[in-house]
């Protein structure tokens, strides 16, 4: 009933090899792209590295006209907004993670809140910034008047609040994942000894997931450091060193966003790229460490 099948084995062999080569080659490409990104940043930063050197990190004057490129205000602005955002969002993200990872793992309530968190992650940065500009800024201005500080409205604090909202879904999804990995026999052992749920969460789950939760925070911090648009729209874009959490400022990412296309002069452009290099290196270190911790936690 079946006619002879013609075998073209040579051809098959060739295609087989070509296919495997293509796969491996494509994997190499990713590694090459990453290295190329690093070296592109490094090479283009060289003029600034040579001309400015370490002054880049401690000088407070950023004045392209007189060729002064001290990035300290932006470094401070970046760190201040990111850490403040982390401080604001952490209690909430841990709470949501416990809510979704322990109290409401399944069912309609879980679904609703999971979807909300997903949507929160899906809103573009520029829309957060836009909304912040029209809703958050007036609110902060009122707060500042009550507190008797200069009522800019925009500034470090406003940016941090928006950043806190933006990184929340990110740390929630990581912490929830970590919390849901607590072996149930551990929890059951505690329950069988008469522990309440509160005690199980604070005495079993949190200690067990400490390293994983820490990694989640670290990765969220990495996110916040490089976040650009919303911060650019809300931070006030001054070149002065911020004097407090309500003062306007600038972050490295927002300086790049504002000035890159207008930068004239080799050193100026190079100094901006150096900030990019800095963000890249910090984000990479944080990312690798964070992922490593999570991986180790998952394997345990």
């Amino acid at each position: 009933m079946i006619t002879a099948i013609s075998y073209k084995s040579k051809q098959i062999n060739f295609k087989e090899k070509a296919f495997k080569k293509t796969l491996a080659l494509s994997a190499i490409i990713v590694v090459v792209i990453l290295l190329a990104i690093f070296f592109t940043l490094l090479i283009n930063s060289l003029p600034s590295l040579k001309a400015i050197g370490l002054k880049f990190f401690y000088q407070t004057t950023w004045d392209p006209v007189s060729d002064q490129f001290g990035a300290l205000p932006f470094l401070v602005g970046t760190l201040l907004t990111s850490f403040l955002a982390l401080v604001i969002s952490t209690p909430f993200s841990i709470a949501v993670a416990i809510f979704l990872g322990e109290y409401y793992k399944k069912g309609p309530v879980a679904e609703i809140f999971k979807n909300i968190v997903d949507l929160l992650a899906g809103i573009p940065s520029v829309i957060y910034g836009f909304w912040g500009l029209f809703v958050l800024v007036p609110l902060v201005r009122e707060l500042e008047m009550k507190l008797h500080v200069a009522p800019y409205g925009v500034g470090i604090f406003t940016s941090s609040v928006i950043l806190a909202i933006m990184i929340l879904p990110f740390s929630v999804s990581l912490s929830r994942q970590v919390i849901s990995m607590v072996p149930s026999h551990l929890k059951e052992a505690a329950y069988s000894l008469g522990a309440t749920r509160h005690e199980v969460i604070t005495k079993i789950i949190i200690p067990y997931t400490k390293s994983g939760l820490f990694a989640g925070l670290l990765l969220a911090l990495g996110r916040a450091l490089g976040e650009t648009m919303a911060v650019t729209m809300l931070i006030g874009n001054t070149h002065d060193l911020p004097t407090g959490i309500f003062s306007p400022g600038n972050t490295m990412a927002s300086v790049i966003a504002n000035e890159f296309t207008e930068a004239t002069g080799r050193i100026y452009t190079s100094a901006l790229i150096e900030m990019g290099l800095f963000l890249f290196v910090v984000a990479t270190i944080i990312n690798v460490i964070g992922k490593q911790i999570i991986k180790r936690f998952t394997l345990e």
């Binding site: 491996a24 994997a27 190499i28 990713v30 590694v31 792209i33 990453l34 990104i37 592109t40 940043l41 283009n44 990765l219 990495g222 996110r223 450091l225 490089g226 976040e227 650009t228 990412a253 790049i256 966003a257 890159f260 901006l272 790229i273 990019g276 963000l279 890249f280 984000a283 990479t284 944080i286 990312n287 690798v288 992922k291």
Partner: peptide, 28 residues
Amino acid sequence: RLGYYCRLAVDVLQGIPSIVIGIIIYEW
């Protein structure tokens, strides 16, 4: 081994701030 490095590179790539991607593509 290549898979390991590729996975690492993908993780790092994912974490690069978007503004840095902008710089890179500007240069490239």
